[in-house]
Computed example of a mutant assay.
Amino acid sequence: MFGGDVNIQLRTDPAGAFVGIRDVLAKADFRFVNLEGPLCGQGPLIPHKPNWTYADPAMVDALTWAGIDVVSCANNVTFPASAAVASLEVLDRAGIAHCGAGHDLSAARRPAVVQREGKSVAFLAYSSICWPFEHAATASRPGIVPMRAVTSYIPDPRVAEVPGAAPTVITTPFSDELDALVADVEKARNENDHVVVSVHWGVPGTVVANYQYTVAHAAVRAGADIVIGHGPHSIQPVEVYRGRPIFYSLGNLVFDWPVMHNRHMEGLLVEYDFDGTATIIPTARDGHNTAQILDGAAAIDVLQNLAAISAPLGTTIAVDGSRGVLQLS
């Protein structure tokens, strides 16, 4: 079971964040989310991210209560290094596996591996949303695993005639970081039965940037069974590439950061069977910021919108009651 962005803070009862979806999560063999918010207490703030607040280490109880097995720590708020290290230590004490960040680049690139029913599943995590200074891990410094991209602009042909005409935006992944990701996936595939690749990327809205396609397709060609995206806080299209699902953004699952209150309320859970079945479960946060499973008309609306934005990629999503079934053939 895969979920999107999770930020837990300022709660007297951390477990309450997941009370509305715990029964659904419990049906899975393992559960994975993006932990967007280090569990490091007050810590050093991010001066260039206004109003940002970190989570208290006690908030890890929400993850353990919900049965979260693996989290990605590769995102823009796993920063600075001291906050990242403190959070990893909290996760280690709680017995929650993590990927995408580490005490050095080698540790950050190391996959989290979960064993189930004689099979091993490796989780790798990367972030394209990355501060340009002291954020990416190095051989001697803690941090995250970057998967950055270059942005360029092609002016509208009529811009001289029509001032303000929007340019075409072109994004291209850093070639060395893409090569490293491919090598990571190939190695993980050789050593495990299945590989999950998670990337923190994209911009709010439903438009997928060029580099996201390039990175996702390369990951699948290298051996990834599924690519899980998050970062824009909004739901983005789903693509099936070489029979493998790519979820460009699952949106928010739980997000307590006050700035996010009453914004980007909907998200997706994905129940994936490595034999080739993907079921999409719409969620939304309620007035108490608690994740709830949607049903009825609300669920159908989310699924129909997802099907509509995914159709240009050749994706077919069948709506079965309050669930979506992704056709992988």
Rank of each mutant, 00 (worst) to 15 (best):
A137W: 11
G118Y: 09
A101N: 08
S249P: 09
A180W: 03
A278V: 00
T206C: 07
P50G: 01
H261Q: 02
D29N: 11
D69Y: 09
V254S: 01
P38N: 07
H217L: 00
A149Q: 09
D273T: 14
H230T: 09
D301V: 04
A107H: 07
Q327H: 14
V195H: 13
H48C: 06
R189G: 08
L63R: 01
R158F: 04
A81F: 05
A139F: 00
D176S: 13
F255N: 08
K187F: 07
H194T: 03
V169Q: 15
P132A: 10
V207A: 14
Q304R: 15
P142G: 12
T315D: 10
V319M: 06
S329T: 15
A297L: 14
V197T: 12
A74T: 01
H264T: 11
T171F: 11
E239L: 01
H98D: 06
H200A: 07
D156E: 09
G321N: 09
D301Y: 06
R11E: 02
D286N: 10
H288N: 08
A218N: 03
Q212R: 07
T172N: 02
V203T: 14
A122T: 01
I144Y: 12
V6Q: 03
A86L: 00
P47R: 01
A149W: 11
I8K: 05
A58N: 05
K49T: 01
I280T: 08
R141W: 12
L328Y: 10
S234E: 15
R158D: 04
G229M: 06
V19R: 14
R244W: 08
Y54L: 07
N252T: 12
H217W: 12
P132R: 08
T168H: 10
I226H: 02
A84I: 02
D184R: 02
A284L: 11
A218K: 04
D295S: 14
A318I: 13
V71K: 10
G243L: 15
R11S: 00
A299P: 11
A219R: 10
A15E: 10
L303Y: 04
T12Y: 08
